[in-house]
């Protein structure tokens, strides 16, 4: 009996103790909320926007309908974001307020205003984009011209230099080594400057486009020459022997047997070079060529609008993506015989 009574008393006191704890924690949390709102407003009046935002974010969701601290804090926050054109963040704050105070008119109106403004901002981006696009596209056509020209010329130039490099005729081999050494060992920018600004001093004056063609063509031929040479030398010597044993000349063996086998191996590094090429064409903007980079530069200097740079970036990305995908397709095709 005695045991039983003492046990029930113990149980009761524990319950009371727990209740007191919950109450205390509630009171303290309520006090903390009021503090954060006040703190935030204080910082705001002092002009410490970031600190104020931090405090407002700490304000806890309301426990009762009468508690309006959360509403006030988050509304200020939403307006701050709105003024900073942080539309997504502002919208998120409004949506949180409406979760607890679905009827609040001020918040609803603010949300509408945000959505409106957001649309206008995007519209402005599009409108400005439309304004810049013709000039940028014109530049893109020039960039593509340079890229396609170099893509056509440099594999041929590279092949010729590579064959010269592996020739047993020493002067030719040395000459090709020299070309590769020079064009791979100096910046493309320097080469372009030399061809466009330097050659006139030697009595050779070239139009910007001609100079750009020469610079890019020679530079990329030199790079591809090394890739092609490595590709040719990676083919088993037995292939050349078998071709010769059939009675093929060196040229026939190269054309029919050796070079076709290099395609699979040289395609990935050549693809890499061509991606670099798309970006490298931007360098010719320094020799009075108006291509994509130069067009973007001119527009940016007129309007000081970051939209121009974003658009130019998007166009470059589109170009590199298309070329990457195309090359992957070609790679898969030329390597087919090793999978069967």
């Amino acid at each position: 009996m005695v045991n039983n009574i003492s046990f029930s008393i113990l149980k009761k006191t524990r319950r009371i103790f727990l209740l007191v704890l919950v109450f205390l924690s509630l009171v303290s949390s309520l006090r903390a909320e009021t503090n954060y709102l006040k703190l935030g407003e204080q910082e705001l009046s002092l002009g410490n926007l970031e600190q104020a935002k931090q405090y407002f974010l700490q304000v806890k969701p309301p426990l009762t309908d009468e508690d309006l601290d959360f509403l006030r804090a988050r509304l200020i926050l939403a307006k701050l974001y709105f003024n900073e054109h942080e539309f997504t963040l502002a919208k998120k704050q409004c949506e949180q307020i409406l979760k607890y105070y679905p009827q609040n008119l001020e918040t609803q109106n603010l949300l509408k205003a945000i959505k409106n403004e957001e649309k206008r901002f995007f519209q402005r981006f599009l409108d400005n984009g439309k304004k810049y696009l013709p000039a940028l596209l014109k530049g893109t056509v020039m960039t593509l011209t340079l890229v396609l020209f170099t893509m056509l010329v440099s594999p041929l130039g590279g092949l010729v230099i590579a064959l010269g490099r592996i020739s047993r005729f020493l002067p030719l081999s040395l000459f090709c080594w020299f070309i590769i050494w020079m064009f791979r060992g100096t910046p493309l920018l320097l080469q372009l400057f030399f061809i466009y600004y330097g050659l006139p001093a030697l009595g050779i004056t070239l139009k910007p486009l001609t100079a750009a063609f020469w610079g890019l063509g020679l530079n990329y031929s030199a790079y591809l020459a090394e890739i092609i040479r490595a590709g040719i030398q990676s083919i088993d010597a037995g292939q050349m022997e078998a071709a010769k044993a059939l009675g093929m000349t060196y040229g026939q063996a190269m054309r029919r047997i050796i070079i076709p086998q290099t395609y699979k191996r040289i395609m990935p590094p050549i693809g890499n070079e061509f991606i670099a090429l798309i970006k490298d064409t931007a360098l010719v903007s320094t020799i009075a060529m108006v291509e994509l980079m130069r067009s973007a530069d001119q527009l940016f200097n007129t309007y000081f609008d970051v939209t121009v740079l974003i658009l130019a970036g998007i166009i470059y990305l589109l170009l590199t993506t298309v070329f990457t995908l195309t090359f992957e397709k070609i790679e898969r095709k030329v390597g087919a015989y090793e999978q069967r």
Binding site: G238, Q239, A242, A243, A245, I257
Partner: peptide, 13 residues
Amino acid sequence: IGMVFQHFHLFPH
């Protein structure tokens, strides 16, 4: 003159 090698040297492509 036909020649046949130890390691065949067929043209893999």
